[in-house]
Simulated assay, not measured.
Amino acid sequence: MELKHVIIAYKAGDSESKTWAERCAKELEARQCQVLLGPSGFKDNPYPVFLASANTIKIDLAIVLGGDGSVLAAARQLAPEGIPILAVNVGGHLGFLTEPFELFKNTEKIWQRLESDLYAVEKRMMLEAGLYEGSRTEPQIVSERFFCLNEMCLKPASIDRMPTSILEMEVDGEIIDQYSGDGLLVATPTGSTGYTASANGPILHPGIYAIAVTPICPLSLSVRPIVLPPGSIVSVWPLGDYEVNTKLWTDGSLATTIWPGQRVIVRMANSQAKFIILRETYSFYQTLREKLHWTGTRIHYQNNGSGKIIN
């Protein structure tokens, strides 16, 4: 990998993340690398400025220092541009999508590894969505395209009450069901360990390409999550929402309001998020055990096929 043009985004409001970002920028600039540096947070989105500034040049790498929220924001903006992301847990909490900070402390060694191609690249499926109007057979898009790494969420939002939504879903032109409750999640395998897991949805291995649809607190015990093939076209629209409460959220960030007569169509995106993996051994199952605090069995035994119990 060449390190000629690099983006560095740090967690807004976190002094440790900012300090390490400035250190990385100084070291890379000493290597004759052009660096674009800025904060990323709820009120800070540096990526449109970054991408506009680099309109005529190729960005080699994006370094994201923060937690999963910072990574999700970066993926939504950078994946469509094909820019690889090195995400490091600096100032974050759960860190599902990040490399351990301990591996990053020797930054000079990291630059050497990157330039020598001593790393792996993990690709993660993403979703894209848009608002459509018109007939079911020939709908016309009336919004920009929205991307997510975790999930698209359709749910009502009101400042003075907690409204219940009634959403109808169609998959590949066939009506599936009406969902009455707090909303609906359309998630990637990456997102299956986030909001979807909290809503009792399935946990999917990120190596699987699939779409998980999970109702949020449905007002029916018969309603269950469903896993769809990655090529499915998911269309969802609100019923009887005359106060325009229903919103579309991407990875927890507000995307747009859904107006009467409009529908949200979600499909697998053409682009994938590309993450740089520094760990020599990486296990999704180990990540689940550590991050979700799975305790596992209370009886330990030698894993040699004999089933011998260890006291």
Rank of each mutant, 00 (worst) to 15 (best):
G201A: 06
G194N: 09
P189Y: 03
H205G: 09
I208F: 03
T190A: 14
P202D: 06
G191T: 02
A187F: 08
V186G: 00
A197F: 12
Y195I: 13
T214W: 11
Y209F: 14
V213M: 11
T193N: 10
P215H: 00
S192G: 06
I211L: 08
P206E: 09
A187N: 07
I211M: 10
S198N: 08
I211K: 07
I216V: 11
G191Q: 10
A212M: 06
I203A: 05
P189E: 02
N200F: 11
H205C: 13
I208L: 13
P218H: 04
P218A: 00
L219I: 08
T196L: 07
T196V: 11
I208W: 00
I211F: 09
G194Q: 10
Y195E: 09
G194P: 06
G201H: 07
A187P: 10
V186A: 01
A197T: 02
T190V: 10
T190Q: 10
H205T: 12
S198C: 04
I216D: 11
Y209T: 15
I203Y: 01
V213P: 00
Y195Q: 15
G201F: 04
S198L: 06
I208K: 01
P206K: 09
P218W: 03
L204K: 06
P189I: 04
I208P: 00
L219M: 09
T188F: 07
A212C: 10
A197K: 11
H205D: 13
I216C: 12
C217T: 14
A210I: 12
A187R: 07
P218Y: 01
G207T: 07
G207F: 03
G201K: 08
T193G: 09
T188Q: 01
T196F: 02
I203H: 01
N200P: 11
H205R: 12
T214I: 13
N200W: 14
Y209E: 15
T214D: 15
T196C: 15
L204C: 08
T214H: 11
